[in-house]
């Protein structure tokens, strides 16, 4: 039987993530425990707050190598917001910090945007596929055209490889990667669990992809 595990590494509102997953599966737990996370057939990395605080939270619990190993072995991982940022190699929030490095790339502050653009980028904004028909076969399949999601962030995902960008979003004149991933790894800069019905489709698709295997 499959068990999904939301990794509790001490940052942010994890309850809404749990609530959203429970709409689609009973086999989900919230844990910071190494054994539970080892056994899990899929991981969800939630999170809000700074890159450094996130990595510290994982380090304190001895989870960094474990998550890297599971990613390498093909365990599906869904990263949300900070959890998506941690998938990359380096973060530049409050200094330079090493990330999980599951995907090559870095996390940087928004560059200068159009005059009057406010940071954090907070609110609803739409996703467009980075390339045509790219969403087929990913957790973004079955979304409506230009689906709107809830964003709340000051730093952006910068994967090194173009093929790891799945969706893009435009804010203050800048188009940035809003969904990244490859194979079994997916990172969403926005909060699907807070993004009403369209966001929940991503959660549902992720659950189906895990439980279908």
């Amino acid at each position: 039987m499959s068990t999904m595990c939301i990794v509790d590494y001490g940052v942010g509102n994890i309850h809404s993530v749990m609530k959203a997953l429970k709409l689609y599966t009973d086999n989900v737990i919230l844990s910071e425990n190494i054994d539970n996370i080892s056994k899990a057939t899929a991981l969800v990395l939630p999170g809000q707050g700074s890159f450094a605080a996130g990595m510290d939270g994982l380090k304190k619990r001895g989870l960094i190598e474990l998550i890297q190993k599971k990613a390498a072995r093909g365990t599906p991982i869904l990263g949300i917001c900070l959890g998506a940022q941690l998938l990359l190699e380096i973060g530049y929030e409050f200094g330079t910090h090493e990330g999980l490095g599951i995907l090559p790339g870095k996390v940087v502050a928004f560059p200068e945007l159009q005059l009057g653009t406010k940071i954090p980028h907070m609110g609803w904004n739409s996703l467009t596929p980075a390339r045509p028909a790219l969403w087929e076969g990913t957790a973004l399949k079955s979304l409506t055209k230009d689906p709107e999601m809830y964003f709340i962030h000051s730093y952006i995902l910068q994967p090194s490889m173009r093929e790891h960008i799945i969706a893009k979003t435009t804010y203050g004149g800048l188009t940035f990667p809003s969904v990244i991933g490859k194979d079994h790894i997916l990172g969403c800069q926005f909060h699907p669990e807070k993004s009403s019905k369209e966001g929940l489709k991503i959660i549902e698709n992720f659950v189906l992809s895990v439980e279908g295997t």
Binding site: K19, I152, E193, K194, S195
Partner: peptide, 25 residues
């Protein structure tokens, strides 16, 4: 499953923790 802001009588870090654990963003 949309963002929730809560307020009223918030006066400590612990109060904020309780609000977030209750499901507020």
């Amino acid at each position: 499953c949309i963002p929730l802001t809560v307020g009223g009588g918030i006066r400590s870090i612990d109060d904020i923790n309780k609000a977030l654990h209750g499901g507020a963003d």
